[in-house]
Design a protein around this nucleic acid. Structure first.
Lengths: 222, 222
DNA sequence: CTTTACTTTGACCAAATGGTTAAACTAAAT
DNA sequence: ATTTAGTTTAACCATTTGGTCAAAGTAAAG
């Protein structure tokens, strides 16, 4: 198979990158991601990953020592992705309404692109909770900021008082649930061809309206 | 091991039941349920099931031919359980408010007893959607009745108009999500000892209130 | 007691699977 | 050209795992 090498001259002894259009290491990583996503850890096979990456099984081990390490690698980045970058929303004075809108929007978009993510994470949460605990600290994820904004709005009577954590859970739960049960919904609630997709397209707005009503925020504003 | 046999005299050649305090077949089934619940199909081991049932591995195959059939057996009954018996709520004239209250109550109670159920079902939905399709028809589950009551209440302006399916999804989703993400929540949102359990105990009421507000129903009534 | 029919077990098997190793290969550096 | 260091492969291995089988066990029926 055609192997072209690009040179990135550097000091020291670093030569490393035998980059192709896309390095094998990266191809393997992407293949592994796909396989782990659709099969889960236990059912995923190193051979299948190798095949899908167009590589040898031993090469997979060469780059990522073993199955567990390879999985950890992927899980880590996936887990981070599941904490959508809400940072951008926090610029300027944070408005609860906009914040919730952004939260829903971010999750709906993310889940449309990566519908396997929730089930993947959930499976691993149950398989090895200890690991996830460590991961959380590594990633430095902290929902405190989000909760603070919500809590403040509640104390100022801008919205119905409730446990901010519960509001977040409810919101994210409603975003995620239709995605993880999608195969079922196609049979049970949206049997018509394309009906589910149609529902999805309007979900962002209807979900936001639902949350607004539940929290006492204005549904429409500007 | 002590093997006592009870006799249930019968006509014909039926002798069958070598019932003990609890027949081996049932013990195996229960063990399999536990193992499948916590490991998922792929990671579950026939040996582990046998061990946990205090039986021989070959015996497991004797009763349930193979892993797939054993799993199917369990999945079928579990899947049915996940459709809580709302029938009891339909006696008399169905009131939407009471119906939603019952739906939430049923799910919260069910999930407290069987927290592994959702993840178990979700995993299988993704592993073999075809099978689930057939299963749904077998079980004869039909959410139509529930949806009809909701739809009627909406057309009578007793509550905010929206897609009844979406309301059901939202409601069930909020019930289920905290359960499937429980291991995570312990670390992230309710780190204090016993704090999550405390939250759970009040969830039934707060969830119902949330849904009432979102749908425009009265939170308190009688 | 003997037969009958179900139950239980230990030994065994073929296939799959994660992982290893030594050798071949490739391209940059000397 | 030779060395050097990372890359790739084929062959191989040990273990696990789902599954089988023939033999032994057991209680009720004849």
């Amino acid at each position: 198979m055609g192997t072209r090498h690009n040179v990135v001259p550097q000091g020291g002894k670093v030569r490393k990158s035998t980059d192709r259009d896309e390095s094998q290491e990266e191809l393997i990583l992407e293949a592994a991601k796909r396989v782990f996503f659709r099969k889960g850890y236990a059912a995923a096979r190193m051979q299948e990953i190798a095949d899908e990456a167009g590589a040898n099984k031993a090469l997979v081990h060469y780059y990522f020592r073993n199955k567990e390490k390879l999985f950890h690698h992927i899980f880590k980045s996936s887990f981070k992705a599941f904490w959508p970058s809400l940072e951008s929303v926090f610029v300027g004075e944070p408005d609860v309404r906009q914040l919730l809108k952004a939260l829903i929007s971010l999750y709906v978009d993310l889940l449309e692109k990566m519908p396997y993510l929730p089930n993947f994470i959930i499976t691993e949460i149950n398989r090895d909770p200890e690991k996830v605990a460590g991961l959380i600290k590594e990633t430095g994820i902290q929902p405190e900021k989000l909760m603070a904004v919500i809590g403040k709005a509640m104390s100022q009577n801008q919205m119905v008082k409730m446990d901010p954590r519960e509001l977040i859970l409810n919101t994210v739960g409603m975003c995620v649930f239709p995605v993880i049960t999608r195969p079922l919904l196609g049979y049970m609630l949206w049997p018509d061809e394309g009906a589910y997709e149609k529902y999805l397209s309007g979900r962002k707005a209807s979900l936001f309206a639902f949350v607004c009503r539940a929290t006492g925020l204005e549904v429409d504003k500007n």
